[in-house]
Amino acid sequence: MSFDAETASSETVIIHVGEALDFRNADDFKATFQEHVDEGVRQFILNFSDTEVLDSTGLGSIFSLYRAISPDDGKVAFADVSEPVQVVVQLTRTYKVFRQFPSVEAAREAFAE
């Protein structure tokens, strides 16, 4: 199962996380972002509007994305964060690293500035 990724601009890609990002599909998520990282994309918006499940393997795959692009000042934004995702983000204090936006549109505007 692959992830729905949408090119917002030459610098920004939106990945729609869908219902679950966990140990079952974390490798697919990595393959999805890797393709864009290889093409030079350094800004990612993750849309969590439908996400019910984010386990530690799933979160780990997002960290891998961050590690891949942070040497080039890349950014990962969390958009429309659902309640289950918010719990994980709070516990691991990762809101210090991933900026959150109420919507994908708001994240796009912030990246475009």
């Binding site: 960290f63 516990l91 691991t92 204090r93 210090k96 690293v97």
Partner: peptide, 9 residues
């Protein structure tokens, strides 16, 4: 009391 997870930053 808590800080960022290890291995990220």
């Amino acid at each position: 009391h808590s800080d960022l997870i290890l291995g990220l930053e």
